[in-house]
Amino acid sequence: ISPELLIKHPLQNSWTLWFYKNDKQKQWEENQREISTFDTVEDFWALYNHIEAASRLQSGCDYSLFKAGIKPMWEDTKNKSGGRWLINLTRQQCINDLDSYWLETLLCLVGEAFDEQSDDICGTVVQIRTKGDKLAVWTGDLRNNDGILKIGMKYKERLGLPNKVCVMGYQAHADSMVICGSMPAQNRFTV
């Protein structure tokens, strides 16, 4: 094999994959398990091929992919001033599109698809729930209005979500933290 083929392609950032499994005997944070960190295109695929597809996870489980050093929780210093673009998948989308949307989201992140806005990206979370799966891209600074909107538009375009039918909302983590019961946090931005 030529040495050229042995050189892996470095990513701009190191990324950590996390797995959350809801075990009521344990604290929320203990249920978040760090799986692996990678920083090349080849290692991304090696990990992706090694794990269960999102659609095959049990209800109550999450996968998260965050830049190395950022924990997949609101309280992390890199997250606490930010929020998330959230997609509540319809039943039909959960059945047909979950795995392709999740892979597309991962490719957007590791490939730095959001141009100069990529620095504001913290990570992504896919949540498997009986009521409907959720997919989110987390960003770090709520004040970065233009950047958040550009990320939202680009993300929606990459997933191929129809513009008029599907409205995607951006929620501040600070709002989500103080919400009681099942009321969703108010959208700060929509695309």
């Binding site: 695929w45 091929n49 490939g111 141009d115 990529s118």
Partner: peptide, 20 residues
């Protein structure tokens, strides 16, 4: 510069893990 990769570039490195 930033190491940004478009979709088609990333996808070409997708491979199936060998059976061990």
């Amino acid at each position: 510069g930033k190491k940004a990769y478009d979709r088609s570039f990333l996808v070409q490195f997708q491979w199936e893990p060998p059976c061990v």
